[in-house]
Amino acid sequence: MAKKYVYITRKLAPETIEKLREQFEVKMWDSEDQPVPREILLEEAKSADALLTMLTDRVDTELLSKAENLSVVANMAVGFDNVDIDAASERGIAVCNTPDVLTDTTADLTFGLLIATARRLVESSEAVKNGEWKSWSPFFFAGHDIHHKTIGIAGMGKIGEAVAKRAAGFDMEILYHNRSRKPEAESRIGAVYCDFEELLERSDFVVSLIPLSNETHRLFNAEAFKRMKESGIFINASRGAVVDEQALYNALVNKDIAGAGLDVFEKEPISANHPLLTLKNVVALPHIGSSSAETRLAMMNLCAKNITLILNGQKPQTLINKTWISQHS
């Protein structure tokens, strides 16, 4: 009996691959830097029983219609806006993601990005490296305090709660907006629920951790930035497309807000000549929210575990489309 076939769209850790190869035929796009070309992914999908995908891989109706043997898509991310969940469910294909294992790592990065933006860490570091540190003066690279300020978290999922926990350590007032209230977070961390407009108006730091959807696409637009304080700082560690980047650029240039820290962009990788990258009050990172060696390995292994469980007729650990269970019970 032929082994089931697993296709992996990016180079992963050898230990993860070896676990899969104990049971399955495995093929991998052997590049750390470049995504698998679309035409190759479409061709491999035709015979794959499982796909281990990245956010850069579009798993849409075109691909799924070719994937006659496909049982599972294991997406190495918490978000899954690159996967057509409805189309997968219609075909009885399980879609899995990697929640929980990256919560604290992403929260660390998000709060670190907030600190770096507020205290102008990247800008001042570059000044030292470029020989621009000539003397000391009272307002030399003066940034903004973080302690005892107000943070507004848009999207109070597990990562949002972890960021709020870190903010509490800085004695910050914690506001949040979410599709549903989180009473446990309110009592445990002292977070206060408010509507989106109030969050924008009251916060010194507005942190976006909302998932991308039709409702949240470019939610942070010109009107949103106008509502923020002129001293306000915007942080995005969710998805680039929740921001109107031209509106953000205009808000920064016109001094409607004081700065922005961005780990994600609407088009990734962002072009080096993008207008936002010309601004000194922007800290830009290459989508590294969950990028620690330990966490990325845990994400890889969770994807491999979900694939192994499903291909052996068992329930996966982190299933997105819950209707799959009733289809296969």
Rank of each mutant, 00 (worst) to 15 (best):
T9A: 12
K11M: 13
K11E: 13
K11F: 10
L12I: 11
E15M: 04
T16P: 03
I17L: 09
I17P: 02
K19E: 04
L20H: 06
R21D: 07
E22D: 07
Q23K: 15
F24E: 03
F24G: 00
K27Q: 14
K27L: 07
K27C: 06
M28H: 07
D30I: 07
S31E: 05
S31Y: 01
E32G: 05
E32W: 12
D33I: 11
Q34C: 07
P35E: 04
V36N: 02
V36Q: 00
V36D: 00
V36Y: 01
V36H: 00
P37Q: 00
P37D: 01
P37W: 01
E39K: 02
E39Y: 02
E43L: 01
E44A: 15
A45W: 01
K46C: 09
A48C: 09
D49L: 13
A50F: 04
L51A: 07
L52E: 10
L55R: 09
L55M: 15
R58H: 10
R58I: 11
V59K: 06
T61E: 15
T61H: 14
T61F: 08
L64G: 02
S65M: 11
K66F: 06
K66W: 08
A67V: 11
A67Y: 10
L70K: 12
S71W: 03
S71F: 02
V73W: 05
A74Q: 03
M76I: 11
M76C: 13
